[in-house]
């Protein structure tokens, strides 16, 4: 009796192992790609990325079909998923393997354990490449906002109420920012360049789309103390957006030497700080204003003059 049972059991075991072995190889490939590329976001769930092994987050995505998942992975998906997770040099098949790996992980619940438990050497290798999310305290540039957290859509931005239906009707900023020149601060859009290059056409008049500003091309140089380069204030870029009355005479007296300006005042929201640090590029961008190198004149020459 025992014997007759043992043979089919063995056969079943072999049959069971064969497809498992193939899937396992595929899984290894997927895991390798996952560990190299996808892990950046999908381990910690950055920017709404479904976490590896998070069955609940993956469920609706898996329901939408594997082809839709392949499509999102290969071509990217708003708001934050770049095409191929940013690794455009990886072949399509490998990306698909990584998707399969993540889908399998979601179905299993406990990915690493399930995949590696049957194979001895793999199980030993597993601790060397843990897939567990790294604690935030150990992340690279702990205090800097990672690129994936910039310009989130309104429901995810922390100040809009996601329970409000209107919030979901608002335009996600990245939808338009992607077509505009980038900068390193503020909205991360270079608004001056966007206007100069005619990429945006903000009206100068509330109702008349044809009205145009009278742009005044006059640079004011302010010599500053210390080693910082002098400030060049361009009327041109300012009058393209603003009316003279916005700044003169309330914020700046239109007279040379009549205005005391300091970085302390600007940081506290006065003078240039009325806009810079609130809506125009912030004060972290020192060199956009402090742009004119000082004439370093040797003392001897100065005396000779």
């Amino acid at each position: 009796m025992n014997r007759t049972l043992r043979i089919p059991a063995l056969a079943l075991a072999i049959l069971g192992c064969a497809p498992f072995g193939a899937a396992h190889a595929q899984n290894d490939k997927g895991k390798a790609i996952y560990d190299k590329v996808c892990v950046a976001c999908h381990s910690a769930g950055i920017a709404g990325a479904p976490k590896l092994g998070d069955a609940k987050a993956w469920e609706p995505r898996i329901k939408a079909g594997i082809d839709a998942l392949y499509e999102s992975a290969l071509k990217g998906k708003a708001p934050a998923m770049p095409a191929k997770g940013g690794a455009t040099d990886v072949p399509d098949a490998d990306i698909k393997a990584a998707v399969d790996y993540m889908v399998a992980a979601a179905k299993d619940g406990a990915p690493a354990a399930a995949a590696t438990a049957p194979a001895g050497p793999a199980a030993q290798a597993a601790p060397a490449t843990p897939t567990a999310p790294r604690p935030a305290a150990l992340s690279f540039n702990r205090l800097l906002k990672p690129a994936s957290k910039r310009n989130p859509p309104p429901p995810e931005d922390g100040i809009h109420d996601p329970d409000n239906d209107g919030t979901h009707a608002l335009q996600p900023p990245l939808q338009v920012f992607e077509s505009l020149p980038r900068s390193n601060a503020g909205n991360r859009v270079d608004w001056v360049k966007a206007l100069d290059n005619n990429l945006i056409g903000p009206r100068w008049d509330r109702t008349d789309p044809a009205a145009a500003p009278v742009v005044m091309d006059l640079n004011i140089v302010r010599e500053v103390k210390g080693s910082m380069p002098d400030v060049v204030y361009p009327h041109k870029q300012h009058t393209a957006w603003l009316d003279c009355s916005n700044c003169h005479p309330q914020i700046f007296i239109p007279q040379k030497g009549a205005n005391q300006i300091s970085m302390a005042a600007i940081l506290l929201g006065q003078k240039c700080g009325v806009c810079h640090g609130k809506v125009a590029f912030p004060v972290s961008e020192c060199r956009i204003c402090h742009s004119k190198k000082k004439n370093v004149m040797p003392v001897k020459n100065a005396q000779a003059n």
């Binding site: 100040i159 809009h160 608002l170 335009q171 900023p173 338009v176 920012f177 909205n187 859009v189 608004w191 945006i200 903000p202 009206r203 100068w204 008049d205 509330r206 500003p213 393209a240 957006w241 603003l242 009316d243 009355s245 916005n246 806009c275 809506v279």
Partner: peptide, 19 residues
Amino acid sequence: IFPHWFHRIRFRCKVCHAD
């Protein structure tokens, strides 16, 4: 919540802040 970025694509500062 007033989004400056959305409005500055459509209007220059002057329209709201001066007019």
